[in-house]
Design a protein around this nucleic acid. Structure first.
Length: 415
DNA sequence: TCTGGGGTCCTAGGACCC
DNA sequence: TCTGGGGTCCTAGGACCC
């Protein structure tokens, strides 16, 4: 396979959520701020560069952050805002090429190989993108340009904030030589540790290491690791419209406090099942497998199981029943910190006709509730047992995720 | 006063069928 | 009477990404 060289651009919005908040509220500009969730047990999802200077990091809880930065301002995140801004920025990117792959709410890959006739150079496109994003949204971004996605992503990480880094084909080897292998997208903590046991810490070392040994140790990943070490990556930029359909739909939540009582567990399971069912129905997805996951109070121990049914479901109470049936097979050994419900083994069917009157009634009731929820968001209407419960008060607002995809089914229920 | 939430892909073993 | 191998589906768990 010998194709002509590609030009790939990776764009990473700097401190995206925090930047959006600072843009919306001028009083926050120039100040150390942290975007958090509304729940009690929340962590920092993003912080401004002013806050990072103090050592504030993603994943810290509020009091840890306050320790390192006493004047830190906490802002409760608002997914609608970020999603909206993200979509607008994607529109802007698409003026340069239709080949835009939305990688997360604050990152995208652009294949600009075909855009060179219109714009003199890749750098030119990068400067225009940066200028327009700054002008329209007041946000800076870091851009990496390289012959493939792996290197473009690596490059965008090299200068932050507001950076531009270009890696040309003839300098790949030199530039990779001393880069830590851990910096490669796909090499996490565990793999990095395994590699270091083999005496590998840099990309250079990884690329020179015998592929056969890597294969033996890491299986299918081994070969890929070897290629990555040499900066080789053939994966295409896939525009989001052509992306695979989503394969699972799930929600989980860390509870305000650890719980043990069955009634209380059931209440949250019902809420989660409703969240999952609502999203599944909105996108005409039916699933055959339900997974219940439980994180215990000690944080490190997990419980849970999956069951596969003989039919496809997407009604909240069917999901709920399955989740409860799993719960009934478990022997709980600790109070519960987190509960999760997930639907998988999905099938996409829009016009499945329910056979029985009972089924029809259920569908009608569900769609009526969905349309109200569509208009008002969150859990304006929900099942009886949730009313007056503490869980309905927060209206699902604890859902904040930096990697949340703003397109298609990956959307959470925010309109 | 610890530690969020949404996903994808891969592996390995067992059941079951032909 | 004796014992192969391929394919598929399922569960559980781990690693990774944002």
């Amino acid at each position: 396979m010998n194709s002509s060289p590609r030009i790939i651009l990776h764009l990473d919005m700097n401190a995206f959520f925090a930047s959006v908040e600072q843009q919306h509220n001028p009083e926050l500009r120039g100040k150390p701020i942290a975007v958090v969730g509304s729940a009690k047990r929340t962590v920092i999802t993003t912080s401004s560069y002013e806050a990072r200077a103090f050592g504030v990091k993603t994943g810290m809880n509020s009091w840890q952050a306050k320790q390192v930065c006493p004047e830190l301002i906490f802002v409760v995140g608002d997914n609608r805002k970020y999603s909206h801004t993200s979509k607008e920025i994607v529109k802007l990117m698409k003026q340069f090429t239709p080949m835009v792959e939305v990688f997360s709410i604050d990152e995208a890959f652009l294949d600009i190989t075909g855009s060179m006739k219109l714009y003199d150079s890749p750098e030119n496109i990068a400067y225009l993108l940066k200028a327009q994003i700054r002008h329209h949204f007041g946000i800076t971004c870091s851009i990496g340009i390289a012959p493939n996605k792996l290197l473009a992503k690596l490059a965008s990480d090299m200068q932050k904030p507001d950076g531009l880094t270009v890696i040309k084909t003839d300098e790949i080897e030199r530039r990779l030589e001393r880069i830590p292998a851990k910096d490669l997208c796909g090499v996490g903590n565990k793999t990095a540790r395994q590699l270091s046991l083999l005496g590998i810490t840099t990309c250079g070392e990884l690329g020179r290491f015998p592929t056969a040994i890597l294969k033996k140790k890491f299986g299918i990943i081994g070969e890929r690791l070897s290629l990555m070490g040499r900066g080789i990556d053939d994966s295409p930029v896939t525009p989001s419209e052509e992306a695979d359909e989503v394969k699972t739909v799930g929600h989980s939540m860390t509870l305000e406090r650890d719980i043990e009582e069955r009634q209380e567990i059931l209440k949250f399971l019902l809420q989660l099942s409703e969240m999952v069912g609502q999203r599944a129905r909105r996108y005409s997805v039916w699933g055959k497998t339900v997974t219940l996951s439980i994180r215990y109070a000690d944080f490190d121990t997990w419980a849970g199981k999956q069951v596969t049914l003989t039919r496809y479901i997407n009604q909240s109470d069917d999901i709920y029943k399955s989740a409860v049936s799993i719960l009934d097979t478990l022997v709980l050994t600790q109070p519960i910190r987190l509960l999760g419900v997930r639907l998988s083994n999905l099938r996409y069917e829009s016009n499945q006709l329910p056979l029985f009157a009972e089924e029809r009634k259920k569908l009608l009731l569900a769609s009526a509730m969905d349309s109200v929820n569509d208009r008002y968001g969150g859990f304006t209407v929900t099942y009886g047992s949730l009313l007056d419960s503490e869980s309905s008060k927060d209206k699902g607002s604890h859902v904040i995720s930096p990697a949340w995809r703003p397109e298609g089914i990956r959307n959470i229920d925010v309109k």
